[in-house]
Amino acid sequence: MKQKDLIAVFDNDRDLVKAIGTLKENNIPVKDVWTPFPVHDVLKMLGRESRLPYFSVAAGVGAVIVTFAFLYYTAVIDYPIRYGGKPYFAFPSFVVIIFLLTILLTFISTVIVFQVRTGLFPGKEAEVPVTGTTDDKFVISVGSKEGLADEIITEAQVILSANGAVEITEQER
């Protein structure tokens, strides 16, 4: 038997958020959501809040340590030169380099991790169920791995159209 997903299209984010709330109350699984711009409530409701900021903080702390170690090694241990009457370990002069390299390393590593985690790479085809999701349409797909029972699909259809879905289609996988 083929499995079916429900694809519901909305015109605005308020209806979309309301619909997701009602679906969750009725224990209907929401598989994915597409929106033209980030809607924070959706991430919160689906428990899909990004953990990228935590990675960034960790990368930033790591970058501070790495840069400091690099500067300390080069300026104090490996090739100590006295300049301007300053001590070898002249901390204030390290700060600017630590500051800049922390920004650079954090930024680069965050971008790389983001690309890897989301599976995005140059030339990748967009996976969108309805073409309008990058423009002005908000889409919920209802479904689960095992497929949905027919009565759940009907229930979901009722909920979605009651919450202002402008178009509901079934999609086979």
């Binding site: 301007g84 009457g85 204030p92 002069s93 700060v95 600017v96």
Partner: peptide, 12 residues
Amino acid sequence: WFMQYLIIWYAN
């Protein structure tokens, strides 16, 4: 804060 300090510290 640090820029004011650093430049004065560096120029000495």
